[in-house]
């Protein structure tokens, strides 16, 4: 599958990803700037904050409970905010587009 990260400077990077990974891990493996993943993917640091493109909102599902708690204390949160460690890559998300928020 492919994922496109829209970076904070407005440019985009499209990368290959295997199924079953946390989207945060895909970003860190590809050195996407603005995604740090300090807590290792436990929805406990909010350093992997992204906005999900409208057409992908349904497919990426609902926020998890710890994610919801964390986003309540995070900068610049919008309705389409997600922590990318709480999104798993899968064939159903092939072509996913997210915007990196930065922290």
């Amino acid at each position: 599958m492919e994922v496109t990260f829209v970076l904070q400077d407005g440019t985009s990077r499209t990368v290959e990803a295997e199924d079953g990974w946390k989207l945060m891990e895909v970003a860190v493996d590809n050195a996407i700037p603005g995604i740090d993943g300090d807590c290792g993917g436990e929805a406990a640091c909010a350093t992997c904050h992204v906005f999900v493109a409208p057409e992908w909102r349904a497919a990426t599902g609902e926020r998890t409970e710890p994610e919801q708690d964390m986003l309540a204390s995070t900068f610049g949160v919008r309705e389409d905010s997600r922590l990318s460690c709480q999104i798993r890559t899968s064939a159903a998300l092939d072509g996913l587009v997210v915007e990196v928020v930065g922290s």
């Binding site: 640091c45 708690d69 964390m70 922290s103």
Partner: peptide
Amino acid sequence: PRQHLSFGFGIHRCLGNK
């Protein structure tokens, strides 16, 4: 190197870490 506990984790994580 970013893997450390010094800022804490969860809702009370350091506000001024950046």
